[in-house]
Write a protein that binds this DNA or RNA. Structure first.
Length: 368
DNA sequence: AATACGTGGGC
DNA sequence: TGCCCAAGTAT
């Protein structure tokens, strides 16, 4: 049995040596770069990360620059990637590395796990990829590959299954080759051992794969219980006054924390989208708004919600333009072109992209 | 332990 | 098109 294990590992290493893809974060193994890339890759497909990673490294080339960053700038850089607490945690962790580690990047599991945003996976990834330490990692790729190789008949998030995966991931690491081995398993998962279209004929460890032998590759891993999606009808209003647009910055906690948005919220039962806009403005800012003009319905999703965002222009119906904020940290009146500099949730960004391309709305934006 | 936390690509 | 999925973490 040990021979089989080592052969599996050796086959993976040999395959990876040939098929390893050049990626922006593979130019070198500096811990800082590995850290940033691994956090960006959390729950995010790697093809989406490249541009963000390059921009990030250009703007914040080291821990010190990140520690000195402004949260608004960081969130703008992160706009569109999702899970924005990752960006806020990067900044917090950078400050800890400067203040408590004298600026040198931690290289122990304990120190890494103590940093916000670094859990078991990311700690293992940094230790193995940056420092070549024999620490295991289990991500969605490893879960899928091993669920097939070992024919695991319970969902991979299952407690015992998860424990098994971490044990196997540790056992299979060849001495002194953790860096290449851990990446090899993930690379196999992303290039060959694909979720819906596995390329078993191109797989270097096919002879070791129990699910292949049993011809049940597509039945592994066993899916977790289906997620429940909740449809949401939401209304938002783009409040224009004397050529300026009202925006508010979301609270420090919860979804889209620290991002900028137009006031709005769920459409209540028996309420029209227009009524929801007026009510939400009253509740969130104490503004009286009216003169609504429909722009579009933007569809987007976040976590378990599937949102239909009903978008309107609106105007102040009395003169007062100083809000009383009940759902935001701060607010601003900005010129339309300034909106590009603010980090906004994808739904609101989609709305703006749509406006920019539609000249029908230019006049409303200019109206004093 | 279960849930919150985003987004866009693929089919 | 609606649903699944992705280099997870925090609470």
């Amino acid at each position: 049995m040990p021979q089989v294990m080592s052969t599996l590992s050796q086959r993976l290493l040999d395959w990876f040596a040939i098929h390893k893809k050049p990626l922006p974060w593979r130019e070198n193994n500096e811990p800082y770069r590995i850290w940033i890339s691994e956090v960006m890759l959390q729950q995010t497909q790697r093809d989406r990360v490249g541009t963000y990673f390059r921009r990030f490294l250009e703007r914040f080339p080291d821990v010190a620059s990140l520690a000195a960053s402004r949260e608004d700038d960081l969130l703008k850089l992160w706009e569109g990637l999702g899970y924005y607490s990752r960006a806020r945690n990067l900044r917090k962790a950078a400050a800890i590395i400067i203040d408590e580690h004298g600026g040198s990047f931690p290289d122990s599991p304990e120190a890494l796990l103590a940093l916000p945003g670094i859990g078991r996976y990311t700690a293992g990834a940094i230790l193995s990829i940056a420092y070549n330490k024999p620490e295991p990692i289990v991500d969605a790729n490893v879960e899928r590959v091993f669920a097939r190789v070992f024919d695991l008949d319970l969902p991979v998030k299952d407690k015992t299954t998860s424990a098994f995966l971490w044990t196997k991931a540790r056992e299979l690491i060849p001495k002194d080759r953790a860096r290449e081995f851990n990446q090899a398993v993930m690379e196999l998962g992303s290039l060959v051992c694909l979720s819906r279209k596995p390329r078993c004929s191109a797989c270097p460890i096919q002879p070791h794969c129990e699910a292949y032998r049993l011809d049940i590759v597509l039945e592994r891993p066993v899916p977790a219980k289906a997620k429940e999606y909740i449809p949401l009808e939401v209304a938002t209003g783009l409040l224009v006054h004397q050529g300026l647009i009202f925006v508010q910055k979301r609270p420090t906690e919860g979804v889209w924390a620290g991002l900028w948005e137009f006031p709005g919220g769920s459409i209540e039962a028996g309420e029209t989208p227009e009524q929801a806009v007026v009510r939400e403005y009253q509740e969130e800012t104490e503004f009286d708004v009216g003169d609504l003009e429909k722009i579009a319905v933007v569809r987007h999703g976040y976590t378990k919600y599937r949102v239909a965002l009903h978008c309107y222009f609106c105007a102040l119906t009395n003169g007062r333009r100083e809000p009383v904020l009940h759902a935001a940290q701060e607010s601003r009146w900005v010129r339309p072109e300034e909106l590009a500099n603010l980090a906004m949730p994808a739904g609101h960004r989609k709305l703006l992209d749509l406006l920019v391309r539609d000249l029908r709305f230019a006049e409303r934006l200019r109206r004093p």
